[in-house]
């Protein structure tokens, strides 16, 4: 069995985590990886905590069990930390990427992740600047691509553009691409 990278997204319904997880799988799939993405819905209402998952591999993925021990955890909403243990099951060498405007030290404590690697990005601010609404999925995608080194941001964005082109107006597409690129550039290790 070859190595499979397992990723978990934490967000609230409406923040685009499910779509981001799907987009990641689709874009990396087109770039030659084998991928899986699936959501886990709770109460299907805006604001409810949701989780979404990705598997990325260089060879076909057969497993259909749930991801229990992710190597990468993304947190799109820092207010989730009050109710959700985002570190649950994460591997000892897991990477955490959080959308937050807090100081990394303060955040590290709240995340309950010990000494594991933490990356922070103010994705909400980028989203508001570039897209006009606080839907931080695109900047977080950019940050993820940077941190995991899964793809080159330009080729990622090229496929990302084609993918969004099926569903959105060019204004939204350009905003999201810019947000993804800024996420890639602005994410910082904390």
């Amino acid at each position: 069995m070859s190595k499979v990278l397992e990723i978990r997204w934490h967000a609230r319904a409406g923040q685009g985590a499910v779509m981001a997880a799907n987009n990641l799988a689709q874009v990396l799939g087109e770039l030659g990886k084998y991928t899986q993405a699936y959501p886990e819905y709770g109460a299907e209402k805006r604001g409810a905590p949701v989780e979404a998952f990705d598997r990325i591999s260089d060879s076909p993925i057969r497993i259909h069990s749930r991801i229990e021990e992710p190597q990468v955890v993304l947190v799109l909403d820092q207010t989730l930390l009050r109710t959700v243990d985002v570190s649950e099951g994460a591997t000892p060498d897991a990477i955490f990427i959080a959308n937050s405007n807090r100081q990394p030290d303060e955040l590290r404590q709240k995340l309950n992740i010990g000494e594991r690697r933490l990356y922070v990005l103010d994705g909400s601010r980028i989203a508001i600047n570039e897209i006009g609404v606080d839907i931080p999925n695109a900047p977080m995608l950019g940050a993820l691509v940077k941190v995991t080194n899964l793809a080159d941001i330009n080729s990622f964005n090229e496929k990302f553009r084609a993918l969004m082109g099926k569903k959105f107006t060019s204004k939204i597409i350009e905003g999201n691409l810019k947000a993804a690129k800024r996420g890639f550039e602005e994410v910082k290790q904390g």
Partner: peptide, 12 residues
């Protein structure tokens, strides 16, 4: 197909 497990799972 299995509901959610396949229906909602993006696969290559």
């Amino acid at each position: 197909i299995d509901g959610f497990q396949t229906s909602h799972m993006v696969e290559t």
